[in-house]
């Protein structure tokens, strides 16, 4: 089998930082640092005649879309619902008391999950906007007594489970239907607390992705950081086996430092794409549970999110003041 290749196709400069990305019927929506949601075409270019959606007061950190609707979340604590066709804001509700870090839709599109720094994972009926479960299990404070942060969540492929992960490296697995906490794992290396030099922390689990066969969960962040002034830890993925809860693999990049902000499997399910950055951005291709990368490339910007735009390996990537498109072959 030929070695995989990942080649940069197009690069578009942007004024704002793009934090989040979701595809919907051939169009792609990216949440920005300007508090707006921007419509992009598959190459990352701004879609003509699609003005940005304005309805947030802070960074838009999550977008998700399904069945003609788009949901966006922001550090302003709002969960907004938009009509994709008209661009009209349908509803807006205060979903969390602190920053919202992520929004995800279940595979069937019926359940919406939001994760916020109030350390709550909330499940919503995507049709009615009704709160179904308020899941509390993440510690509000770090072991050192500072506020923790709940960064990310991810539905399992069958939609029965949802995982959530926080700053201090805790991963919780919940049953969607009942809201019951099933498992609690810890990836402690993802969190660095500097007691001696700087008296502060950095890190956290920034991305999660179930394997297509639902046997493992990939967890993304960075390894131990010597100097917490910057993102100097090695880009890191840990694999946990769902049934046993055991950690069954670890990848640490020798080539790239920084946080892994996004994880997703290729359309064929053979590889995991890990995207992130420090002072430079990166894209890393991994086989499941692998300790070495199949491919690592440098991105022209810090990457916040990547989404496949086709089954043929076309990848749209957004991040620090840029949107780029790539071809995986």
């Amino acid at each position: 089998m030929a070695s995989p290749k990942l080649e940069l196709q197009r690069e578009h400069g942007r004024e704002e930082i793009l934090f989040s990305l979701s595809g919907c019927d051939g169009e792609f929506y990216a949440g920005g640092s300007d508090g707006r949601v921007h419509c992009l075409n598959p190459t990352g270019q701004a879609a003509p005649n699609r003005p940005p959606l304005e309805g947030h007061q802070s960074y838009v950190t999550g977008v998700a879309c399904s069945r003609g609707h788009l949901w966006s979340v922001s550090y302003d604590g709002l969960l907004n619902r938009w009509s994709i066709e008209s661009g009209r804001l349908i509803s807006s509700q205060k979903a969390h008391q602190k920053w919202i870090r992520d929004v995800q839709l279940s595979p069937d599109g019926m359940t919406l999950a939001t994760a916020g720094d109030d350390m709550k994972l909330r499940l919503w009926d995507s049709q009615t906007g009704r709160l179904i479960h308020n899941l509390e299990g993440h510690a509000a404070q770090s072991p050192q007594g500072f506020s923790s942060m709940l960064y990310t969540c991810c539905f399992s492929p069958d939609g029965a489970l949802i995982a959530s992960a926080d700053r201090i490296g805790e991963i919780l697995i919940w049953e969607v239907s009942s809201g019951q906490l099933l498992q609690r794992w810890h990836a402690s290396t993802m969190y660095t607390w500097d007691e001696v030099q700087r008296l502060r922390s950095i890190g956290g689990i920034r991305s999660l992705c179930f394997s297509p066969d639902q046997s493992t969960l990939a967890v993304g962040g960075m390894g131990h950081v010597q100097n917490v002034d910057g993102l100097g830890g090695k880009a890191r993925v840990e694999w946990f086996e769902l049934q046993s809860g055991k950690q069954v693999g670890t990848f640490e990049s020798e080539a790239h430092k920084g946080l892994i902000e996004g994880l997703q499997f290729t359309p064929q399910g053979s590889h995991l794409v890990a995207a992130g950055g420090s002072s430079k951005g990166f894209l890393i291709l991994l086989e499941p549970k692998a300790e070495k990368a199949a491919l690592e490339v440098e991105s022209p910007m810090y990457v916040h999110q990547a989404v496949f735009t086709s089954d043929q390996g076309d990848l749209l990537v957004v991040g620090h003041q840029k949107a780029t498109s790539w071809k995986l072959t």
Binding site: I202, D229, L231
Partner: peptide, 10 residues
Amino acid sequence: GRAWWDSHGQ
């Protein structure tokens, strides 16, 4: 003295 606020990252 409360160190260290040098937040080049995050």
